[in-house]
């Protein structure tokens, strides 16, 4: 039996725990604790990790990990992303500086982004139109990344599945690239 790892990261409140819950086949394990940070408008926050699982037909498993959002937990980002086959960055567009938020994760995962497929899911775009998805793409381009940026409602399994599908497409394209360069 093999185990594969998929990591959800992103800002506090962007829905990492919700996204894992939307597709996990086991009740998600959460390490949420009372939030004492008055700048965050939420009662609980993840400090360790979230964990969910998808079981494949041959017995292999996909382990879904959610990282803590705040950058003071960036040591967990590294631990959880090691050997992951994909990274999903969730951004909450209702926060004051979504583009600055994105920059934090691009920097925090700079090493992983060199060879790990990554997709950016932006939430609450319907109520918060700016920055636009194109603004995110431009910000990514300025840092040398061409990554998918799509609007998501992580409560909907179909939206979370689309994020994963785009990750797999990246990996497939990389595999073809590797094959041709051999």
């Amino acid at each position: 039996m093999k185990e594969y790892k998929l990591v959800f990261t992103g800002t506090t409140g962007a829905g990492k725990t919700t996204a894992i819950n939307a597709i996990s086949e086991v009740p998600a394990v959460k390490t949420d604790v009372a939030n004492t940070d008055s700048t965050l408008n939420k009662e609980f926050t993840t400090v360790g990790l979230d964990f969910g699982q998808i079981n494949l037909a041959n017995g292999d498993r996909v382990r879904l990990f959610g990282t803590p959002g705040q950058s003071r937990f960036d040591f967990m980002w590294k631990i959880l992303t090691k050997d992951a086959f994909g990274l999903i960055i969730l951004i909450d567009n209702s926060r004051p500086e979504p583009l600055a938020d994105l920059a934090v994760y691009l920097e925090g995962f700079a090493q992983e982004l060199r060879n790990t497929p990554c997709v950016i899911g932006v939430g609450r775009t319907e109520e918060h139109h700016t920055p636009s998805l194109d603004d995110f793409s431009t910000a990514l381009e300025s840092k040398g990344f061409t990554l998918p940026v799509i609007p998501v409602d992580v409560r909907l399994p179909k939206d979370v599945i689309l994020l994963i599908e785009l990750l797999m497409a990246q990996a497939e394209a990389d595999m073809q690239e590797e094959f041709l360069s051999q």
């Binding site: 394990v29 390490t31 604790v33 400090v47 990790l49």
Partner: peptide, 12 residues
């Protein structure tokens, strides 16, 4: 920060 992660994992 690290202690809170470890403690939270210990709880689960």
């Amino acid at each position: 920060a690290m202690a809170s992660s470890i403690a939270a994992i210990g709880i689960v």
